[in-house]
C-alpha cells in the first residue's frame, strides 16, 4: 500500500475528524446525551485516532522496513 495512502489514513483522517467539525460543534448548543456535542465528539476522537494509526500500521510492509 502506498505511503501516501497510509499518511491519509494515519494522519489526515484524525486531523480532519478533530479539526473540521470543531468550529461548528463548539459554538452551537447541540447536545448528545445531555452533554455538549463538541465534548462527546472530541472524546470519541481519542479511540478513533488510535484506530486510524492501527490501520496505517497494518497497511505497512514491516518485512521490508529497515527499522530494527
Amino acid at each position: 500500500m502506498s505511503s501516501r495512502f497510509r499518511i491519509v489514513i494515519g494522519l489526515g483522517l484524525p486531523f480532519f475528524a478533530v479539526l473540521a467539525p470543531m468550529p461548528w460543534l463548539s459554538s452551537g448548543p447541540l447536545t448528545l446525551g445531555g452533554f455538549p456535542a463538541a465534548l462527546v465528539w472530541l472524546f470519541a476522537c481519542l479511540p478513533l485516532t488510535s484506530l486510524c494509526m492501527a490501520v496505517a500500521w497494518t497497511l505497512e510492509n514491516h518485512a521490508s522496513q529497515d527499522e530494527e
Binding site: G10, L11, P14, F15, V18, L19, C45, L46, T49, C52, M53, A56
Partner: peptide, 8 residues
C-alpha cells in the same frame, strides 16, 4: 491527541 499521529 493530534500530536500522536504526527509522532507516528
Amino acid at each position: 491527541v493530534l500530536a500522536y499521529p504526527v509522532g507516528y
